[in-house]
């Protein structure tokens, strides 16, 4: 990944003062040992097992300042430890720490991605060749899980649109479908006796959603190679949609004419739709989506309002003009 861009050390992305501020805040709020122990976990800098550093440039319009400006809320990025030890990645088990425990079993090198369907260029690509043309950028996005918790995450990647355009999708390409790797031998949750979702995991976007500049192909986190539990080597991030739309370990991209079947909407259609836009006004059948709990925020101050389209309404609301979002949830 030798790109002509300056390498930005992680300390520059999230200055230590932010961590220490936060730590003091926590300790003060709790006034007991909790502050110290949780605080020190949060203050941890990148651990030794973090992957190789990537060359990238921060995208100033997707910075912490931009998030704070848009929401008026505290938007400090979650720590590496939080982002890599609290994952929904059922291929490795349903527990939040299962991915951190088992994802190392997945081999991500070599990796290839198949591009199929309604496009002029299709075929199988080695990941390195696939990624070569792109300049990586860092974008700090809000991440809102459908389970009503949220984080702020500094991803490294490039816009999906630039990737898709390379394959020259035809006029028939109304949707883009994605598929996760299927390797039961390396992904214990895919073994048939405990397969609680129909594998492989499938997701999809409308072509205009896929082409929106916010939609990101992610290969890194905190300036490092993406850890396996966060979806290495290649994952999708659609910041205005619930986290489950962000399919991980992508091996297939298909341009199609009709709306693709997606895993969660297939498994529990009354709870999860194709669109899955973050929307405080449309509750999950079992819980409200009006608020969320920010992971890592001080005790007694974790709840905050959920923003329409996760705070990205200005950029994406036009995509859904005239649509009944209660029906197309």
């Amino acid at each position: 990944m030798a790109l002509p861009f300056p390498r930005i050390p992680p300390s520059q992305i999230t200055p230590p003062e932010i961590y220490f501020d936060r730590r003091t805040f926590l300790a003060g709020a709790l006034a007991t040992g909790v502050g110290a122990s949780i605080g020190s976990a949060r203050a941890a800098t990148l651990p030794g097992q973090a992957g190789a550093p990537l060359a990238f440039t921060p995208n100033p319009s997707e910075s912490v300042d931009a998030l704070v400006h848009a929401s008026g809320q505290d938007e400090q990025p979650n720590t590496w430890g939080e982002i890599t030890n609290y994952n929904n990645y059922y291929e490795f088990g349903v527990g939040k720490t299962d991915p951190a425990a088992y994802a190392h079993e997945l081999t991500t090198k070599p990796w290839s991605v198949a591009v199929e369907g309604e496009a002029e260029v299709t075929g199988n690509f080695h990941l390195e060749d696939f990624l070569k043309p792109y300049a990586l950028e860092e974008r700090i996005y809000r991440f809102r899980c459908v389970e009503a918790w949220s984080m702020v995450i500094p991803w490294v990647g490039f816009p999906l649109a630039t990737l898709l355009k390379r394959f020259k999708p035809t006029s028939k390409a109304k949707y883009v479908a994605f598929e996760t790797v299927y390797r039961p031998a390396q992904m214990p949750g895919q073994a048939s006796w405990r397969a609680i979702l129909p594998w492989p995991y499938r997701e999809g976007l409308r072509i205009d959603e896929a082409m929106n500049p916010l939609t990101l192909m992610v290969v890194g986190l905190y300036g490092r190679e993406l850890p396996n539990q966060d979806g290495a080597p290649l994952r999708l991030i659609v910041p205005w949609k619930y986290g489950f739309k962000g399919i991980k370990a992508i091996v297939k991209i298909r341009f199609i004419e009709t709306q693709p079947v997606t895993t969660w909407s297939q498994a529990v259609p009354e709870a999860y739709g194709f669109y899955a836009n973050v929307n405080p006004n449309v509750p999950h059948p079992n819980w409200s989506q009006a608020t969320e709990r920010r992971i890592g925020a001080p005790f007694f101050h974790q709840r905050q309002a959920t923003l329409m389209f996760n705070g990205y309404a200005d950029e994406v609301a036009y995509l859904y003009r005239g649509m009944d979002l209660h029906r197309y949830f």
Binding site: G33, S37, R293
Partner: peptide, 16 residues
């Protein structure tokens, strides 16, 4: 687990 004593941990989301 909450206080991180004796090597126990409440994880990333102690509230949950």
């Amino acid at each position: 687990s909450l206080f991180g004593w004796l090597g126990f941990s409440a994880g990333v989301d102690p509230v949950k």
